[in-house]
Nucleic acid binder design. Structure first.
Lengths: 164, 164
DNA sequence: TAGTGAATGATATAATGTAATGTTCGAGAT
DNA sequence: ATCTCGAACATTACATTATATCATTCACTA
């Protein structure tokens, strides 16, 4: 992946899931250590769950999964873990789905742009400066100081489009 | 307002609310007649409620208001009215707030871009081709066929910024 | 090893949204 | 006029998403 404006694309069904998840966990682990914050077992597990399914997860899906682990869990448990992961840029919240997806280029919480396939549910994440800049500029022109951008596009990914 | 990429800006507190609401209702009325769909009393009332407050309204705020009218109302009542108003482009749903706001340039349901002031809650609506086009192009480049765009920007409007 | 703040546990409830089914109402046909 | 049919609305029940509050545990450190 040389074009870093594409943080994650639509993974083919046959890619190496395990490796993919492992990398995400390792990265998070490293970043947390550097940052002096704690990737506790719970937070790590939630991050893993989010990554393991390559489609966005609802909070209550994750809650169910935690309970399947045999762990006692209630809504605040999962929401707190998600808050932590979002704040630290390991997962993104998709506003139009009320769901969470792993971040393809974890760093501090950052603006991404999301392409959400209406058919297979998979998500691609962009971090495209041209997009965020033009939005910021247009807002500026109206005297508006942009803080956070939500850009989510619903449509069909190439693969699903081909299947029609 | 000559620049039609700005459908509605941050109205000053002293603008003529009543006229503003009246125009919105008249426009909706006309459009519905042309289109052969019905702006029933309920739908009209919900549209009026949405416009009367110049900040986004939650579905349950509206539900409360309907009940204050003395009208019997339950969630499906207000959601159906809102669905109608959204489909016909009279109001927009703001995904990042789970709330609804009057549309500044009613037509068929259309993609807008929204600037949401985090301090006063007011919203400006853009319909900026440069923004929607670049998003569509970038999506296209990934083989993604964009259907619907959600673009919402949280920040501070000029007025609130000046007050800091 | 006692103190401290972060993290989690636990309980309750709020807020948002939908499914399913029945009833009423209004426009056009007879 | 009244019949018929589909749209709009009512009603009940429930599903989903999210937060408030307070207690407890845990990891670090002084």
């Amino acid at each position: 992946m040389t074009d870093r404006s594409v943080l994650s694309d639509f993974k083919p069904g046959d890619h190496d899931h395990e490796a993919c998840v492992a990398v995400a966990l390792d990265t998070a682990s490293t970043v947390c250590r550097e940052r002096g914050v704690r990737l506790t077992p719970l937070r790590r597990r939630v991050l893993e769950l989010v990554w393991r399914r390559h489609v966005p997860s609802g909070a209550y899906d994750l809650l169910g999964a935690l309970r399947s682990d045999g762990r006692r869990a209630d809504p605040p448990t999962v929401y707190r873990a998600l808050d932590f992961l979002v704040e630290n840029g390991f997962v993104h919240r998709l506003e139009s789905l009320n769901a969470y997806v792993g971040c393809g280029g974890p760093g501090r919480a950052h603006n991404g742009q999301f392409l959400i396939c209406d058919s297979c549910g998979r998500v691609a994440e962009l971090e495209d400066h041209a997009i965020s800049e033009i939005i910021r500029e247009k807002a500026d022109a109206l005297g508006f100081h942009a803080g956070w951008q939500t850009v989510e596009v619903i449509g069909l990914c190439g693969e699903c489009l081909g299947r029609v």
